[in-house]
Write a protein that binds this DNA or RNA. Structure first.
Length: 222
DNA sequence: GCCCAGGAGCCCG
DNA sequence: CGGGCTCATGGG
């Protein structure tokens, strides 16, 4: 079986189990961009609290973030952790989008947009790709620790794969389709949270038959 | 109390 | 290029 068939089969197994995930969990483009920054190495539940605080103060838009004093932003996003860093970077990033205005930003090629995002402090590869895929619907596959974990355990990825190598693997073996990339990444996050945690619950895993890392016997004792 | 969570930047060899 | 350190809260 080739990698394309392998990936499609994994996708189908996840989709059959979990159904459509309706990502990104946010309403507007600005909210997606803000959420992508806030969720860095942070539990999404904590991000939800920060987003709610911002919403109450009408700070869930990039333009309003540029107009607000740092301490107020910091206080709102406190639950999301790293709040000093994130507040500073959030404002810089908001200023960037306001300065270049989102209209002209979207007219560039995806590669150009990605390069510009990566040049901003606080936006690394995963955040850049999340913004491209979920805020601008560009066909870019997002890699995160969950994706690496699931595919490393399955035996498809080596343990030390780089971000770019992992991304190339998906993009070279799947149709270039933003809807597919959107749903696939969301399903991987769902699966990692619910089943393929650091201590995996292999007993309920729909990918069990395709996975080298089999913790099934261990789980049965519980 | 300890571990972990949808990373990124910086510094160092 | 890759590893180690820092940033920080809240839930299990």
């Amino acid at each position: 079986m080739n990698y394309t068939q392998e990936l499609v089969e994994i996708y189908d197994l996840l989709f059959d189990r979990y159904g459509p995930q309706h990502w990104w969990p946010g309403e507007t483009r600005d909210e997606i961009i803000i959420g992508a920054i806030l969720t860095q190495n942070t539990n999404w539940k904590n991000v939800e609290k920060a987003i709610e605080n911002l919403k109450i103060k009408n700070l869930l838009t990039l333009v309003n973030i540029t107009k607000t004093d740092m301490p107020e932003i910091t206080q709102c996003i406190r639950p999301s952790g790293y709040y000093n860093q994130k507040a500073l970077r959030l404002q810089e990033i908001a200023q960037y989008f306001m300065g270049s205005d989102v209209q002209s930003f979207s007219t560039r090629t995806t590669a150009e947009m990605r390069t510009e995002l990566l040049a901003l402090k606080g936006i690394g590869p995963e955040t850049a790709d999340s913004i491209l895929l979920y805020a601008f619907e560009k066909p870019v596959f997002v890699i995160d620790t969950y994706t690496k974990r699931i595919f490393a355990r399955s035996g498809i990825f080596p343990g030390n794969i780089s971000y770019d190598e992992a991304q190339n693997f998906f993009m070279q073996n799947l149709q270039e389709n933003a809807e597919l990339f959107n749903e696939f990444h969301a399903l991987l996050v769902r699966h990692a949270k619910e089943c393929c945690q650091k201590n995996p619950h292999c007993i309920k895993c729909v990918l069990l038959k395709k996975c080298k890392f089999n913790n099934y016997d261990l789980n049965q004792e519980q």
